[in-house]
């Protein structure tokens, strides 16, 4: 029983870490600020949820696992709100997103 539990939890943690890795790479690779907010708000949220659910499966039904589920709930609510607040601040200060493809090419050739 604990063997299966351990394997499932390892699978979840590894998947979450892969998602967080892709989110980190997205912050570096994506071309403009508003696209980077997508990488932070979606990929990172899913990665954190996967890792903590994996830890809950490893822990079993204890008081700590309920607290970990509280952390999951809080992050699923708070992470999109935080990135929304930053994007809103940038939009209010007049940061323009760029659309044309040649500007992306320019940044790559630098």
């Amino acid at each position: 029983m604990t063997e299966i539990q351990n394997i499932i939890s390892i699978l979840f943690v590894v998947m979450g870490i892969i998602f967080m890795l892709v989110g980190s790479i997205g912050i570096i690779r994506l071309p403009d600020f508003y696209s980077r907010t997508h990488s932070v708000s979606k990929s990172d949220t899913l990665g954190i949820i996967f890792v903590i659910v994996g830890l809950v499966i490893y822990e079993g039904l204890t008081q700590s696992s309920f607290k970990l589920l509280l952390v999951v709930l809080f992050i699923a609510l708070a992470n999109p709100i935080g990135t929304h607040a930053l994007a809103r601040a940038a939009y209010k200060r007049g940061l323009n997103p760029f659309y044309s493809d040649d500007e992306i090419d320019e940044e790559e050739h630098k």
Binding site: G16, M20, G23, S24, I27, F33, R36, T37, V40, D44, G47, I48, V51, I52, L55, L68, V71, I75, N79, G82, T83, L86, A89, A90, L95
Partner: peptide, 23 residues
């Protein structure tokens, strides 16, 4: 390039640190 990029990256670091503390 802009201030907002820096803030976004620090935000990403802060949220991932939560998982690190749990681990």
């Amino acid at each position: 390039p802009t201030l907002y990029d820096r803030l976004l990256a620090t935000n990403a670091i802060a949220t991932k640190t939560i998982v690190l503390i749990a681990l």
